[in-house]
């Protein structure tokens, strides 16, 4: 479990420019969740997630990863091994001369070599849908944008993290690329039991995958819960965010007197419900 206990982070502490990026944040993420964090640019999302593997330390409060206090140096090392971190545009971190060696980097840093390393690397490549024999010896710099991103993801997955934290993993991809990353993450969650924590702007993608979401606004959690709960009650427009289109449709139908359950998120479910009413009418 990941626990945030009253976490505040202040940038430029002790200066006139001091400001809280996040203030007094408390929440938990349980094992097996697909937890999404939504917020405008500047809402503190990046600061928040970097606390999870101790890249940023809380100014006040505590972050615990499976009980390891991430602000204690010794516990940090143990905690960090549990957390895989995928930054925005992760393909920008590729450096090795072959795809295989790049994925090996993280594995080797864990002190894993030989057969186990090989097994981890190849299974990570398969997990992200990169054919081992075709891609292993290629230079990561010769690949397409979508492929590069999958190599970067494989580099983290091969480290077998218990928690996978991703910052906008679909940014800049085409519809098919977005879909394939999204289903990959869902697969990691459901088949390998990896807990996913994802920051994303694309509401329409989130509604389909998230078990819970948190809305971050001005460094504070404005709402947290299942997508149904959050979108039903939360005034997202006021925070510069947009509702998922499915919810927008439901709301505008309700305004027109068509009373549809307002926690339905799936477009198929909405279509079915409308058809049922249409055929009854």
């Amino acid at each position: 479990m990941i626990e945030f206990l009253n976490v505040t982070h202040t940038y430029m502490n002790n200066s006139e420019l001091a400001h809280n990026a996040i203030s007094d944040i408390s929440f938990n993420v349980s094992e097996g969740e697909f937890f999404c964090i939504i917020g405008q640019t500047g809402s503190g999302k990046s600061t928040l997630i970097q606390h999870i593997n101790g890249l940023i330390m809380p100014t006040c409060g505590k972050v615990l990863v499976d009980g390891f206090d991430m602000s204690q140096k010794k516990q940090l090392i143990s905690g960090r091994r549990l957390v895989g971190m995928v930054f925005q545009y992760p393909e920008h971190q590729l450096f090795a001369e072959t795809v295989y060696k790049d994925i090996e980097f993280g594995v080797a840093n864990l002190g894993i070599t030989g057969d186990e390393a090989h097994e981890r690397i190849t299974s990570a490549m398969e997990a992200v849908g990169l054919c081992v024999s075709e891609f292993s010896e290629k230079s990561p710099f010769d690949l397409s944008g979508g492929e590069k991103r999958r190599v970067a993801l494989a580099g983290i997955i091969a480290m077998r993290p218990k928690y996978l934290v991703l910052d906008e993993p679909m940014a800049g991809l085409d519809p098919m690329g977005r879909q394939s990353i999204l289903s990959l993450l869902q697969q990691l969650q459901s088949e390998l039991g990896i807990t996913i924590i994802m920051v994303s702007h694309s509401m329409d993608d989130i509604v389909h995958v998230a078990t819970r979401i948190a809305i971050l606004s001005r460094g504070k959690i404005a709402a947290i819960g299942t997508p149904g709960e959050v979108f039903k009650n939360c005034e997202l427009n006021a925070m510069g965010l947009k509702l998922p289109q499915s919810i927008q449709l439901i709301r505008s139908l309700r305004e027109r007197g068509i009373e549809i359950e307002n926690d339905m998120l799936d477009e198929d479910a909405i279509a079915d419900e409308l058809l049922r009413r249409y055929l009854h009418a």
Binding site: Q50, N53, L55, R80, V83, G84, M85, F87, Q88, P90, H92, Q93, F105, G106, N109, L110, G155, I156, M159
Partner: peptide, 16 residues
């Protein structure tokens, strides 16, 4: 800014 980001990314991959 980019250097900072890359550094953090590699630290996350266990770089020392």
């Amino acid at each position: 800014e980019e250097a900072d980001k890359i550094m953090k990314a590699q630290i996350s991959r266990g770089a020392q």
